[in-house]
Design a protein around this nucleic acid. Structure first.
Lengths: 203, 203
DNA sequence: GCAATTACGCAACAGCAGTATCGAAAAGGC
DNA sequence: GCCTTTTCGATACTGCTGTTGCGTAATTGC
């Protein structure tokens, strides 16, 4: 962050917020499929040029909006990994369900799946968006990973457990179920998931 | 499948194959981002109308192409779940790596992630595509799920293991890593994954 | 004050997805 | 043979994404 007094006319800071606000509002109102850059610019009372200077593609804009509504989930090791993990995963699920209201109009099943898939596709299309998405998730999950390490050092987890792999299993199962199998995700499922990952499948 | 002699002019069967061939070729040559319906129609020497009568959107066409190159992986319970699972997951990884050649031109990292994400987004956008994708995966994974049940009955897995949840963990971790964290997936990772899921994380 | 630089709004543009319309062709029903 | 139905090819069109060019406004450096 260098507030380096740049050479030319400074950017209108107000515009950024107005655009993001308009974009979020449009996303909530109309859903992803009826979301058009032109309309965002119109709603924000900003020229399309101004918008595109900040976010070079629709994908960039969408990811910026999603990143903005991602709130941090406070996580602290309580001494009971099972409870902590269950709470955190349920928080993720709640976040997805909160997204679900986005674009009820899509009529094609699940809007949360739609947004997640759209973000994933955007990440795959543009390298810089991909980096931003990875950073977003890394930031979001950092606390949980350190929690897992604490639990391991505390003796609650096997010493050879790799937090990264374990978390891939848990979070991956949620998104896989959401995107691929399309079956519902509720607290009971989260419970079975955590139980399975902790106790293991071997007899 | 009713070869019901319909009333009007019959569809040119040849066109379907020509379109799918052209689409696959274009996908292999140019990647997803330079893939345009107009060009597919031109390459297949078919009017755009003819194409759109068969696949009503670009998403439908893409999923049809991907479904076409999905080959079945034979799976049979060998008495060693660990080995069987490892083999199958590596098969999935190989499939993803085979996709990786698709669209080298995209320059944005990983083309396999791109296609997977694009298919997921298409599934979320259109209910019927979603159903087709779910069916595709269900068909692909059915053998593994029965394998897991056999292993459970054989006493190799705990009796309370739910094959569906276990498989979500494994496959989900792969796709989560591919799409979200973007870190490489190799045989060593698959190994750690299977080990983790089977032995469990609890001390 | 003046030049250089950068942002702004406006308008026009190219490219692609998907739709609409039209005449012609190929089949069945009678 | 004739009518109906459906497909085909061709063309033009709408709407959206993303780009470009241009005149103008705001700020820095001198």
């Amino acid at each position: 962050m260098q507030p380096t007094a740049r050479r030319g006319r400074p950017r209108k800071q107000e515009a950024d917020a107005r655009i993001l606000d308009a974009a979020l509002e449009l996303l909530l109102d109309c859903g992803y499929d009826r979301f058009s850059v032109d309309e965002v610019a119109a709603k924000a009372q900003v020229a399309k040029t101004t918008l595109y200077r900040r976010w070079p593609t629709k994908d960039h804009l969408i990811v910026a909006v999603v990143a903005r509504i991602q709130d941090e989930v406070p996580v602290e090791y309580s001494g009971d990994v099972r409870a902590d993990l269950t709470r955190y995963l349920n928080e993720i699920v709640n976040g997805l369900n909160r997204m679900r209201q986005v674009g009820r109009a899509t009529a094609s099943g699940d809007a949360s799946a739609g947004l997640v898939a759209e973000v994933a596709a955007a990440a795959a299309r543009h390298a810089d968006v991909g980096a931003a998405v990875q950073a977003m998730f890394a930031r979001r999950n950092a606390l949980v990973l350190t929690l897992l390490e604490q639990a391991r050092e505390h003796g609650e987890l096997r010493s050879d457990v790799e937090p990264g792999v374990l978390f891939d299993q848990l979070a991956g199962a949620l998104y896989y179920r959401l995107l691929v199998t399309g079956r519902p995700i509720d607290a009971a499922y989260v419970d079975r998931l955590v139980t399975g990952a902790l106790t293991g499948a071997s007899a």
